[in-house]
Design a protein around this nucleic acid. Structure first.
Length: 241
DNA sequence: TGTTGTTTATGTGTAC
DNA sequence: GTACACATAAACAACA
């Protein structure tokens, strides 16, 4: 059973994607909830509370809208048909990804990789890194070591080194880039998300709220039942109950 | 001996 | 100004 925090650790990211896209959802409750969660993400809960102190917050307590939520309905989120990004194939510019992002993408796609396999994955997709340059490889190893979202597993069956994988809470790793501050977004800002990441996140979000049959009572139950009080507390709308 | 993994240090850019 | 994230460099140890 996943915890509420596991849901809310993801929802801010999903909401940021939507807010960045600048496409209001047709459901007002959706917009409210996403605004709350996005605000929570940027650590500006107090400002949000001040701004909305007279509003009725009940509509953000329901997660029912998520059951009908479809990521592909967010028209301004541009999901490339091909995983290969144009900048990835040009090799003329440094890809707009941090090393942790590059590593995460490799591990998301492959599950477990050795350091040398991570090098290979990155250089295959980003010709910028094709150069036999030890500097970026050092940085990759450095990030693997210091970043708690990467987990060192068993020794590789052959060759030196260990198998690296994503830690269980790796969903938190995906950064909310500073250049995409929500309050500075243009109305029709279009973002590009690597398809694999978008679909992964959508799948994770959906998996968290997929209704299931209650075999004991015959009704519908949720994998992650969330009470109104929990949501309100998690949203930071009140400090105590 | 080369690769891998860890640690420390430093510089840069950005947000608050 | 300060804090933070990130990139880069370098030294060193462990291991196949």
């Amino acid at each position: 059973m996943q915890t509420l925090s596991s849901i809310t650790s993801f929802v801010p990211r999903l909401s940021m994607v939507i807010v960045r896209a600048g496409t209001p959802h047709s459901n007002p409750s959706t917009n409210r909830f996403l605004s709350v969660m996005a605000t929570r993400t940027v650590g500006d809960k107090a400002k949000w509370r001040r701004k909305n102190k007279n509003d009725d917050d009940n509509d953000c307590a329901s997660l029912a809208w998520l059951l009908n939520f479809r990521l592909d309905e967010i028209i301004n989120v541009k999901v490339p048909d091909d995983e290969e990004h144009t900048e990835e194939t040009s090799g003329t510019r440094k890809p707009p990804y941090t090393y942790p992002e590059l590593i995460e993408r490799a591990l998301r796609e492959k599950g477990e990789l050795t350091v040398s396999a991570i090098y290979q994955w990155i250089s295959d997709r980003f010709p910028f890194y094709k150069a036999n340059d030890e500097r970026w490889k050092n940085s990759v190893r450095h990030n693997l070591s210091i970043n708690p979202h990467f987990r060192k597993g068993a020794r590789a069956a052959q060759g030196a080194g260990h198998l690296w994988s994503l830690a269980a809470n790796a969903i938190d790793l995906l950064p909310l880039r500073k250049e995409y501050k929500t309050d500075q977004l243009p109305e029709a800002h279009i973002i590009e998300c690597p398809k694999v990441i978008v679909l992964d996140e959508a799948a994770i979000a959906a998996a968290s709220i997929i209704p299931d049959q209650d075999i004991f009572n015959g009704g519908t139950m949720f994998l992650n039942p969330v009470s109104t009080e929990q949501v309100v507390r998690e949203c930071g709308l009140i400090t105590s109950l």
